[in-house]
Design a protein around this nucleic acid. Structure first.
Lengths: 137, 137
DNA sequence: ATAAATGGTCAAGTATTATTGACTACTTTG
DNA sequence: CAAAGTAGTCAATAATACTTGACCATTTAT
């Protein structure tokens, strides 16, 4: 399943192609990537088969899987954001609750507090127990 | 850079190994994966070189890159969650603002509204313009 | 002490991937 | 109309990846 996607993007040239590809033609790709051989570009485009298609004008575009692959590349490059995101969410939780408590204590106690606490508990569980974002970092 | 990670996880057996690996020994992996040949497991473990290490007890564990790779696998499997996450956030934005406005209109107007609006505008921009999560879906 | 299990390495062969370069058919541009 | 550009295909070769199976040094169990 996913190994097919990773096989497709396991070559440096194919990652370049995928990033550049949108709304470009065969020759434009060849030129902009500095590839001399047509056969080479053809070979790698065929390996990207499931990640790309063509629009009406004969230009390449990404499929759903293509966008997912680009997202995976982004995930590898930006691994570490989850930790930051967790603390931003924790700060937002505290801020929202403070504002809500000051504004209307009873309303906060019966609506905002239980809902936001349920959320933060779930998020903490997901972050620590399941995704293990704090391990090995 | 990232193509090395994708090359490492471009084989179905290596994805299985990576998912199972934590706190297991060579023989445990062999047994649990049903691999007959030691050479085979050795070969694939060597391909996962950058994604794994050993703990003091001689059991394999994931490195930071290993967790990132697992995250990338998750990204491919769950592509589509962003769209849902966006609508959940939009709903939360509306709910929070409603509660805050009812509770204390002035406080809402000067604090909650501008902050949460700034957030949702940024998030919308990121979702539509940069990540293109609505295209090709 | 012997047998079996652990935790591997290594060489040889097979299979798959990547590159090169020659070729084709069709469309512009001078 | 000839030359140049577009959008590829295909076969042969080079390079890697993958599997098999034999081997080995320790450790643990009988």
């Amino acid at each position: 399943m996913s190994d097919e996607v990773f096989e497709a993007i396991s070559h440096p040239l194919r990652i370049k192609i995928l990033k550049l590809l949108a709304n470009r033609s065969f020759s434009e790709l060849k030129r902009e990537l500095g590839i001399e051989s047509s056969g080479k570009l053809d070979f790698h485009l065929k390996k990207l088969r499931n990640l790309i298609t063509m629009d009406e004008g004969g230009k390449y575009i990404l499929t759903k899987e293509g966008y997912a692959a680009l997202q995976a590349i982004h995930t590898i490059k930006k691994y570490g954001w989850q930790k930051r995101a967790y603390f931003i969410n924790l700060a937002a939780y505290i801020a929202f609750n403070t504002v809500a408590a000051i504004a209307n204590f009873t309303l906060w106690l019966i609506t905002v507090l239980p809902l936001s606490t349920a959320w933060i508990v779930y998020y903490t569980y997901k972050s620590i127990a399941k995704r293990k974002i704090f391990k090995a970092m």
